[in-house]
């Protein structure tokens, strides 16, 4: 009887051999490499108690760092949405010299080590840099100001938006656009009512990924930021500072808060995404 049960369970699970081995490797590896370290962080933060955690994250310097990290990440993501959409659009819809190079280069921020990006962007945007020079002449200082952080976060977030929008744009049925045009809609209307709605979930998903990456970004930011507490100090740098003072508990509290924020972003993202998909389905059905 129990053998029949076991057999039925195995059949429901899947009949290919290798379940024991691959399941064993997967769970052991994930437990040792991901689960235990994350649990250690959460437990360490929990050891402070809710009040203790609150004291750490509500200290003026920490609050300022959270503001810097989240606000600038949001502003960089907002800029990345139209830029990413434009790049995806021209790459999918037009043929032009340099298109293939662009298609390969879009992933540069994912492949280029962050410390290389950091020193490169700093060299570009210092007051006598290629871009910093002309901008400084206009009275705009980028390096060692919050604007520098924005530039770095724009750089690291770009591929996420392009790469989530691009495949959806490729699959769009252009006959719908042509139908709308023959029915007398202006091109602007067609873009807003026919092209943009199905792209919206992908655009939001890309923006969410870019934002999640930007909030935690460290290497490309610290070189260009100037790192002045309260002005251009990001949360990851504050965590490093706490660790250097051997204040493990405070570092854990800040880290756990960042982790929680990242998970909430991902949750919100999947909620918004499914809502956007539903909205789109409704407009299509209507």
């Amino acid at each position: 009887m129990s053998r029949a049960n076991a057999q039925r369970r195995a059949a429901r699970r899947g009949v290919l051999p290798g379940f024991g081995l691959t399941f064993g490797i997967t769970t052991t590896y994930l437990t040792l490499i991901v689960l235990i370290p994350i649990a250690g962080l959460v437990l360490r933060a929990a050891g402070l108690g809710p009040l203790g955690v609150w004291q750490v994250i509500s200290a003026p310097r920490a609050l300022a760092a959270f503001r810097v990290s989240f606000v600038i990440a949001a502003l960089a993501t907002l800029a990345n949405m139209p830029i990413g959409l434009l790049l995806a659009w021209t790459m999918v819809r037009y043929r032009f010299p340099g298109r293939r190079m662009l298609d390969a280069l879009v992933d540069l921020p994912l492949a280029l080590p962050t410390s290389v990006a950091g020193v490169a962007l700093t060299a570009l945007y210092v007051d006598d840099g290629w871009l910093g020079g002309p901008l400084a002449a206009l009275g705009l200082k980028i390096a060692f100001t919050p604007l520098g952080i924005w530039v770095a976060l724009l750089f690291v977030g770009l591929p996420y938006v392009v790469r989530t929008v691009q495949p959806v744009l490729m699959e769009l049925d252009r006959r719908t656009e042509e139908a709308a045009l023959t029915l007398g809609a202006r091109p602007g209307q067609v873009f807003a009512r026919v092209v943009l709605p199905p792209l919206l979930p992908a655009l939001l998903a890309g923006a969410g990924l870019a934002f999640a990456r930007a909030v935690g970004e460290y290497g490309s930011v610290i070189f260009i930021a100037g790192n002045r507490p309260g002005v251009s100090e990001i949360v990851p740098l504050l965590i490093v500072g706490k660790l250097e003072q051997y204040d493990y508990a405070a570092a854990a509290a800040l880290g756990a808060t960042m982790l929680l924020a990242a998970l909430l972003i991902l949750l919100a993202l999947s909620a918004v995404q499914s809502r956007a998909v539903r909205l789109w389905m409704r407009t299509v059905a209507a």
Partner: peptide, 12 residues
């Protein structure tokens, strides 16, 4: 989705 700094912090 974990900040690089936190990916080091957990091991410390």
């Amino acid at each position: 989705s974990v900040s690089p700094v936190i990916s080091g912090l957990v091991w410390v």
